[in-house]
Design a binder for these strands. Structure first.
Lengths: 233, 233
DNA sequence: AAAGACAATTGGTTGGACCATCTTACCTCT
DNA sequence: AGAGGTAAGATGGTCCAACCAATTGTCTTT
């Protein structure tokens, strides 16, 4: 036999079966899957095995199970994807520092790439993002959300899905470590740096974008209160 | 209420319970967990729920379940961690290209960092790694494994666990996409480039290390047979 | 028409039974 | 005594039927 004996659990087969159906649009995102009792009989398996499959899909972020209601299809988000990594980094101060250092390595390159690929249609998006930041800062609120959106916008402009995914995942990890994205301490400074980054990207000047981003991230680390943050309970 | 109602599944509680026991060493890596029937009665839950918890731990890579044998504790590896991402990149030629581009962004920075942090004790490791590559090349074999080990060594030298983890995970994804790491086409060239990278790192010259790595990765992409690779069946 | 009680639907949990696989110890044959 | 095969036990995999818990929609009551 070419297959040395593929012993696959029943629920595993159902998982890939359902994944196929989800991907090809039979079960679109947001729609409700048939009830467990019905699907299990339709697949000719026990409800136990069907439930096991559902549980796996939930862990992978493809469905959301709501007791008394039903099971709904959804797209995996960064929080879900980062979950398996949480264990590895749990409770390590060093891990938090490594995460920040990682951003300092990667994001300048992403900014440079974004500068290479920015088009006129990105102009509005950046202007809009910056405007929102100014508004929030004017109201005296923290601009954590806006900061996040800004960095995401850069990753999107770079047009590399892997980069986007990795950064999103790591951002989810950072907030899980309760060190927070930490911007907002000096909103005026943050926004000024963002403006310089955006200008460099829109001017299609990779080198300037890289440099501006590196400077920005270095400032973020230095003004952070990482040392006083509690990582473990 | 700050907590709108924390409805947690039974198996979820058991999962975190078991994770704690695994982490604090009660169940060391490699050891066998008690049988499902025993553990379930010890936790005062049904075997079904206990099995559900086991299944989750397996998906997270913390245990390996062997029918007729038992459930064994192990450490999550890169293959396991990359699994949730496979779905997102599945069947996309663009994803493979993005992956390679991502490496080209990140690894030069990692090499530069490694150059900053290399110590004399790394000298032997690099010499050894290069030696193995020469041996394998001399036998006319592909040096995929040695290439992988070399890049891992650099990430280790950089001393950033996040970087190491991310690169390992992405490498697992790359091989899943069947595009292979693709080195070995011109082993002599590859090894020469590796030698230059290693020399720059050991000489603690970040700029040279960054440049050498970038050149290396660019060459890898250009000599690859990515265009002819089949990503989907 | 609004508020509350009720019934149906759906996921969550349980206990027990049986199947599939692996390990181990024992037994037989040489 | 050793090698090989065989049977018993242990352990995970699947199934079923029942019941619990939460949600939703409807129906009655006011």
């Amino acid at each position: 036999m070419s297959t040395p004996v593929r012993k696959v659990k029943l629920s595993d087969m159902v998982v890939s079966e359902l994944l196929t159906l989800i991907r090809n649009g039979t079960y679109a995102s947001g729609s409700r899957l048939p009830a467990e009792r019905e699907l299990s009989s339709r697949f000719k398996i026990s409800r136990t095995s069907l439930r096991d499959a559902f549980r796996q899909l939930e862990l992978l972020g493809y469905v959301e199970i709501r007791q008394g209601d039903g099971t709904y299809v959804r797209a995996p988000d960064s929080d879900t994807l980062s979950r398996p990594f949480q264990g590895l980094l749990a409770g390590s101060q060093q891990a938090a520092l490594d995460l920040l250092e990682f951003r300092r390595m990667l994001e300048p390159e992403v900014a440079a790439l974004a500068a290479q690929r920015a088009t006129s249609k990105h102009q509005d998006a950046f202007a809009c993002a910056l405007e929102r930041q100014r508004e929030v800062a004017a109201r005296g609120e923290r601009l954590s959300r806006e900061d996040l959106a800004f960095h995401q916008l850069i990753a999107q402009t770079a047009g590399n899905t892997v980069t986007l995914q990795v950064l999103d995942t790591l951002r989810a990890l950072l907030s899980d470590l309760r060190t927070s994205a930490l911007p907002g301490h000096f909103p005026a400074l943050t926004i000024a740096q963002h403006e310089r980054i955006a200008a460099a990207i829109l001017a299609r000047d990779p080198e300037a974008a890289r440099h501006a981003m590196l400077e920005h991230l270095t400032a973020v680390v230095e003004t952070s209160d990482l040392k006083s943050s509690r990582v473990l309970d």
